[in-house]
């Protein structure tokens, strides 16, 4: 529609600062979402200290460690990808994003094998072996599945987010001078990483 007057501060203008601010605010909500779970974890762990340590021996520390390294490396590659695009190197940026995307896949595959092992041992809430566990261990496994499950969902969302950004970089909609979507994707991916950094010691490394 044509009109002769438009405001300088229009909500329909593209504003990189605004989208980044919006992303940060959204990340705050994500932190608080997990924050509620961390609070519940803290309470039950302090109430069932011994049982939590006992139950944590069922987890495979090597799988967890590998996943931690994979996620940390993918955070590095996504950050490098942003720098690459800032310098105008579209090809390298896409390559680095692809590596990040693959890392997300590797993480999920390892997680899948970990979860399957638990299922085989009947440790999922509602299964036979689970129901015979002492209370504290049941709470541990409930929280384990809830928290790593929700985190896994975030890995999937983050992966989809990065895939969309890749398509947009390819088609030229995201480029050197309009990079905020990639930056926001990177921010989200760092959040996914950050939450795992807390989940890993809380479930795998407790003594």
């Amino acid at each position: 529609m044509e009109h002769s007057f438009s405001l300088p501060n229009s909500g329909h203008n593209f504003d990189a600062e605004a989208s980044k601010l919006g992303m940060w605010l959204f990340l705050f909500t994500e932190l608080l979402l997990f924050g509620g779970l961390f609070l519940v974890y803290m309470v039950y762990r302090s109430l069932n200290h011994e049982a939590f340590i006992e139950a944590s021996h069922h987890l495979n520390v090597w799988a967890g460690t590998t996943n931690t390294i994979v996620l940390l490396a993918s955070s590095l590659t996504v950050a490098m990808s942003i720098t690459a695009l800032q310098q105008g190197n579209k090809k390298r940026s896409l390559l680095l994003l692809t590596i990040t995307f693959i890392a997300a896949g590797v993480f999920l595959v390892i997680k899948y094998f970990e979860w399957s092992a638990k299922f085989e041992h009947g440790l999922f809430p509602g299964m036979e072996h689970y129901s015979q566990l002492p209370t504290g261990e049941r709470l541990y496994f409930y929280l384990y599945f809830f928290m790593t499950g929700l985190h896994g969902l975030h890995v999937i969302i983050g992966g989809i987010f990065l895939a969309v950004v890749m398509v947009k970089i390819k088609s030229g909609k995201v480029h050197k001078d309009r990079i905020s979507l990639l930056e926001n994707g990177g921010l989200y991916w760092h959040l996914v990483d950050l939450i795992w950094i807390y989940l890993f010691p809380l479930f795998y490394l407790i003594h």
Binding site: L25, T29, L32, L33, G36, V40, G126, F146
Partner: peptide, 25 residues
């Protein structure tokens, strides 16, 4: 709205999980 609402979001999800799986927190 931004900083308080997520907490009830996760709490309500826990209630849903508790009802669906029959066991919970």
């Amino acid at each position: 709205q931004l900083l308080a609402t997520p907490v009830i979001g996760i709490t309500l999800l826990m209630i849903v999980a508790e009802r669906v799986f029959g066991i919970g927190l």
